[in-house]
């Protein structure tokens, strides 16, 4: 539980990643100097409000960035290579084989005009070009059964719209796992689901990670989900990594004022009716007009002079934890 990702060589090492997009209001600095490691076999939770840059960070790894990208700096090292320097063709070969993604809306990733069986066979082709279709179908059936699709064999000939939302999410997970990726990026996989179905998907991910040895990067809205599923947590605020480390440590004893403020917003089962709930006053700054110094300073209850003067660097605290705050 407390093993730090720094002890072994990480699967992916991101260093000083900066991403900007061109907008009508000037460049939007969506990620600034982000450095983090994704440890092998770890489930890493990415936490932050909308506008924190968490989705951009997740899509920067397979380099699936929008066309108005205006700046991409730093490095993402994977298997001895820098993904940001890799030619497009080589990177495309990694997507779907080494990196797989599951999304909030599975319909966005499943092609509505092809049968599920066909899609599940096609995506295995990259890794198994010579296998017979029948063998690949058999693997697909086994994986669908594994993720809990009843009557999997018969349902191979169904189209995506014939499945419920929860079932489609299971198919997405099956599709991602069939590729046997090194990194599975899950972008809010349960946000659109009902709570009992969300519970089923969480239990499924829990179960699968016993068998699947790859790394999972989980973008999550819910701190509950992160605390239940993740080994490590990365907290982003306005494109800046403010705190990272083992989940139990960061969530149990947050050091950055933003992490603390965010955790305080969690309502929890002990809430007293009509008690005043915590919130973070103000709004996330616009990525085209980031404040000087620490990005959280305008909303930080403890902000002092040094906070507004310079961007606090990310410092290691030991035990695999890092914090970017001048006051810690």
């Amino acid at each position: 539980m407390t093993a730090s990702p720094q002890e072994a060589e990480p699967l992916i090492a991101i260093r000083n990643l900066s991403v900007s997009f061109a907008t009508g209001a000037g460049p939007a600095n969506v990620l600034r100097n982000v450095s983090l490691d994704l440890g092998r076999g770890r489930v890493v939770g990415l936490v932050g409000e909308s506008g924190s840059g968490k989705s951009t960070l997740a899509s920067a790894i397979p380099r699936l960035l929008p066309r108005n990208l205006s700046r991409l700096e730093g490095s993402i090292r994977y298997g001895g290579r820098d993904l940001l320097a890799l030619p497009d063709r080589e990177l495309a070969a990694l997507r779907g084989t080494r990196f797989a993604m599951i999304f909030q809306d599975p319909m966005a990733a499943l092609n509505p005009v092809f049968r599920v069986g066909t899609q599940l066979v096609d995506l295995q082709r990259a890794k198994r070009p010579k296998d017979r279709r029948r063998a690949l179908l058999a693997r697909a059936v086994a994986m669908l059964a594994r993720v809990g699709i009843p009557d999997a064999e018969r349902r191979l000939s169904d189209y995506p719209h014939q499945f419920s939302g929860g079932m489609r999410q299971r198919i997405m997970i099956a599709a991602a796992l069939l590729a046997e990726p090194d990194l599975l990026i899950a972008d809010e996989p349960t946000t659109a689901l009902d709570p009992t179905i969300e519970g089923q998907i969480v239990a499924l991910i829990e179960e699968l990670r016993q068998e699947y040895r790859g790394t999972i990067l989980l973008i999550a809205h819910s701190l509950g989900l992160v605390s239940q599923l993740c080994d490590d947590v990365v907290v982003l605020y306005a494109g800046t990594l403010v705190e990272s480390g083992p989940a139990a440590a960061v969530l149990g004893d947050p050091r950055h004022p933003y992490t603390r403020a965010l955790l305080a917003c969690e309502i929890g089962a002990g809430v007293i009716r009509r008690a005043t709930l915590a919130s973070i006053p103000g709004e996330v700054p616009d990525a085209t007009r980031l404040p000087q110094g620490c990005v959280f300073a305008p909303r930080c209850p403890q902000a002092a002079e040094p906070c507004r003067a310079a961007v606090p660097p990310l410092r290691a605290l030991g035990g695999g934890r890092s914090v970017a705050c001048a006051l810690v």
Binding site: T196, G199, Q200, G224, S227, Q228
Partner: peptide, 17 residues
């Protein structure tokens, strides 16, 4: 039980419905 509880360090594995 389906709502993932925020409880750092403790994992709850309620059998899902």
């Amino acid at each position: 039980a389906a709502v993932p509880r925020f409880d750092p360090g403790n994992r709850h594995r309620a059998p899902p419905l």
